[in-house]
Amino acid sequence: MSTLTDHHYSIFAISDAALTIDFGNEIHSSLNQKVIALNHCIYSHPFAGFIETVPAYSSLTVFYDVYLVKQSISTEYTAFEIVKTYLEKALSGIQTSAKAESRLVKIPVCYGGSFGPDLDWLCNFTGLNAASIIELHTSVTYQVYMTGFLPGFPYMGIVNENIAAPRKNEPSLKVAAGSVGIAGKQTGIYPLDSPGGWQILGRTPLRLFDPERNEPVLIKAGDQVRFYSIDEHAFNNWEG
């Protein structure tokens, strides 16, 4: 059983009230699993002055209240050093095999046409027909590495290399909410209308972000996602 300390990491400040632990500048599921496991560990045993975390591909950022951290321990150490020590201790205690059960979210997508304005481009780029691209995009269960950029925007991977594609040179001024896109080996979903540079293959009728819901954001880091294809009729009549 391997522990999470088998790999190198660095810890550095990203403000005078936040630090990041970075496991390597690489998109890799094992690194991200470490991030997610450490994240769970912090939320189950938070330290005094803990505010919140942001998991990312290969890093976890911890925000804290400097005053409360300092007040919790009588020491000359800085709040940064106190939180760093806490993190290192937490890290040594967790094991990859102990990762939390992840949730599978199924996402219906209407591919192509006006919902997927870049599907034709991707056909040209890859030499594959639309059906093959859809088949490849829906045949993988993706890991959600992180949520960022917009409220509820999930960064997922790893996309089959035959349909991996670069970002647009000029971002589109408006990508519609629900648009499902590819950038490199990542796939993602735009929760809001937004400018964006990802290649858009289709659109989901699901609301990734709904401020009225108890949980406004549908997909979170650590979840798993599987896409499935629906037709335009199903999209237009989608309920819920």
């Binding site: 990203i14 403000s15 990041t20 970075d22 690489e26 990312a56 591909y57 925000f63 960064y155």
Partner: peptide
């Protein structure tokens, strides 16, 4: 120059 993966940023970065 090396490409960096996205990670958290903060007010004042």
């Amino acid at each position: 120059s090396r490409e960096l993966l996205s990670s958290a940023v903060s007010f004042g970065t």
